[in-house]
Design a protein around this nucleic acid. Sequence first.
DNA 1: AAGTGGTCTAGACCACGAA
DNA 2: TCGTGGTCTAGACCACTTA
Lengths: 246, 246
Amino acid sequence: MLPQQKLLALRPDADSSTPLYLQLGHKLAAAIHAGFWLADDPLPSERNLCEMLGVSRVTARKALDLLLADGLIIRRHGAGTYITPKLEQPLNKLTNLSEMLKQRGFTPGSRWLKREVALANAEEQLKLNLAANCKVSRLQRVRTANDVVMALEETALPFLLVPDPSLIGDSLYEYMRSVRLSVVRAIQNIAAINATEALSQLVDVAPGEAMLHLTRVGYLENGVVCELTHSYFRNDYYDFVVELHK
Amino acid sequence: MLPQQKLLALRPDADSSTPLYLQLGHKLAAAIHAGFWLADDPLPSERNLCEMLGVSRVTARKALDLLLADGLIIRRHGAGTYITPKLEQPLNKLTNLSEMLKQRGFTPGSRWLKREVALANAEEQLKLNLAANCKVSRLQRVRTANDVVMALEETALPFLLVPDPSLIGDSLYEYMRSVRLSVVRAIQNIAAINATEALSQLVDVAPGEAMLHLTRVGYLENGVVCELTHSYFRNDYYDFVVELHK
DNA sequence: AAGTGGTCTAGACCACGAA
DNA sequence: TCGTGGTCTAGACCACTTA
């Protein structure tokens, strides 16, 4: 197949409801992962791309911006745009743990320990921005990878947003999406702790063992806090990857 | 001061060598931090902004994109652009630890334990992509906050890039910049460990205490790996903040 | 000198939110 | 309905790299 013909397959659909730059970004990412271009090879120039794909240069560039943000490509001023030599796919994006584990080749699972409605405790009032008499839906579960306990997860959601926690199935993420509560931004704190006696029994490690304690506050699109989660990870089953940019 | 006059102060300098959208982005960020607009207040609309500031809408938008990436603003389609209610400044950017500590009100310091040139060990060969007989400059230091030991940091740099580690002063970051070696991308792994006997003495904690172990691989603009760092943080002095977006 | 990415413009149309 | 953000275009000039 000639290079020109390969490119033609990436043409975005102008009649689709998804923006051109997103379509193009996804197609390009897929092409890169499929080995469409060799590592250290230059991609077609922006001017070539937009001519072949029938979009403006601004749009092509915006698609490439997506790839850049994901670390898939590197731009060199005056020289060209290149595939990032080392392909890793770290998590800067908001993904759910299940997806993440699947990508790493594990089979995720979970077991509910608690699904209750209760008065918000002091921390929940503070972090979720609730009044003293407000209620929260509180969830507690152990999460597994290949049937081995990997983490304990405790989540608190404002009662007003999630009044019936028993409706939540295996995936909190799926449930939130189904009731139009989409977490678009989160702030996570990561600390190290020694497993307490209670914790060590739940996640099946020795007391005192070092674990990762992840505290996460999630925000809806309108900026409202909607989720407070504490996760306690066995360090031998999980380490957290962050990608940084200048 | 009238709103219009306030906005005029944000006009970028067209003759400056820094791009308009960067100038504007910085000015807007500064204005937000200075309390120029109240939280939950809408910013001027994009069309107003670009008219008042004498730039195109695309440029104004690109400046706002910067603020969005930093979590300073929230856009609501059809409604307007708003200051993010809760102002936090988490670290998705590539900052050096010193800057970070200063922002949190600590006085950073460090004490060198080792600055040597040696043959790359197995891990360094692998992570830094070096041949078996290659040398590395190896640095080890304890880092302090308000004169209390906070972390142990071990860095390996390819000898070809940094041949004389004794030239590195207090700030590795400053040194790298001075020799035109700018880390623009890094991948960090975070895990929890129990302090070993040796480690516990260096950072002044009890043996077995939970610590954060951060492994960081830094890349230059051209994609070359140039830095491998292991940091061991006392969890009572540091917890890592990550901001996530959809 | 030719080609590349980096920036910028003026103007257009669409989809969404609020009055 | 009107103003907002979201997308898109065609064309321009600059700065940089490579040969």
